[in-house]
Write a protein that binds this DNA or RNA. Structure first.
Length: 252
DNA sequence: GTTCTAGAAC
DNA sequence: GTTCTAGAAC
């Protein structure tokens, strides 16, 4: 019998009424999915979107991407597409929160782990900073590296459905032997390809990049505020109608 | 998935 | 000596 914590997602997905879940767990839900806060977030924003178990789909079919891709192709496609649409809504909510909390947006990745550790299909929605005290080892990092191949972007998985049947057959196998070795690859910054000797060094790099981004965005916002204020002051000393002279739209 | 920790790496 | 990784246990 598996360790109970590895099947907890299934208990969530089977809930008839997801609202009963604690607010510390549940972020949002729809008719077809629920989105939870990842218990050990590997970035500033990290959520899991789970398909709810709705007949004719079974918990067993929804155990993983691998098991789902064994069911009749068009039914599997429908489930992945629906999950993806719900994830896009979550992306929108996360972007809104990014602007609220930080004043700017950054990339959000939406995808599956090719070899999941927990049972029940879950789509990761994770911000691209990868700044988190819970990101502790090479496996954590490489499992989200967007170009390494272990992390399967949703749009790539969706493209499999429209590819040659032989390619679909190959990809839907999701062979462990093909993906697990990727987790042991050497540490390279996903953004600038710089290599690192160990996790602490890479984490310092990611933190510095993030701090730099925050600093640049802060300066950008300050500049914009100054620009707007100067235009407003020019207005006060002019007799021309306001809408004839200033355009304060943010084109940055 | 995490925690714990032995021993490798520095 | 300390830091860091990786495998076992849960």
């Amino acid at each position: 019998m598996p360790v109970p914590s590895l099947t907890v997602l299934r208990t969530y997905a089977l809930k008839a009424n997801p609202s009963e879940l604690p607010s510390s767990v549940l972020f949002s839900h729809t008719e077809t999915s629920l989105t939870i806060f990842d218990a050990f977030p590997k970035a500033i924003f990290h959520f899991l979107v789970l398909p709810r178990v709705i007949p004719p789909a079974t918990a067993s079919e929804l155990s993983s991407l691998r098991s789902l891709l064994k069911v009749e192709k068009e039914r599997a496609r429908g489930i992945v597409e629906t999950l993806g649409k719900d994830a896009e809504q979550v992306r929108g909510m996360v972007e809104e929160e990014m602007v609220k909390r930080y004043g700017f947006k950054w990339d959000i990745w939406v995808g599956f782990h090719s070899v999941p550790s927990m049972e029940h299909l879950h789509l990761h929605v994770i911000s691209s900073d990868l700044v988190s005290p819970r990101l502790k080892n090479k496996k954590h990092y490489n499992s989200f590296h967007p170009k390494l191949g272990f992390f399967l972007h949703l749009k790539d998985v969706l493209s499999w459905f429209d590819s040659d049947p032989s390619y679909y057959a190959m990809m839907s196998g999701l062979k462990k032997d093909q993906y697990e070795p990727l987790l042991k690859e050497s540490l390279v910054c996903w953004e600038c390809d710089k290599p690192f000797k160990n996790i602490p060094a890479l984490k310092t790099h990611l933190q510095e990049k993030w701090d730099g981004r925050v600093e640049r965005e802060k300066k950008r916002l300050d500049k914009k505020r100054t620009r707007v204020r100067e235009l407003e002051e020019a207005d006060e000393s002019s007799s021309e109608p306001l809408n004839k002279r200033v355009d304060t739209r943010d084109t940055s």
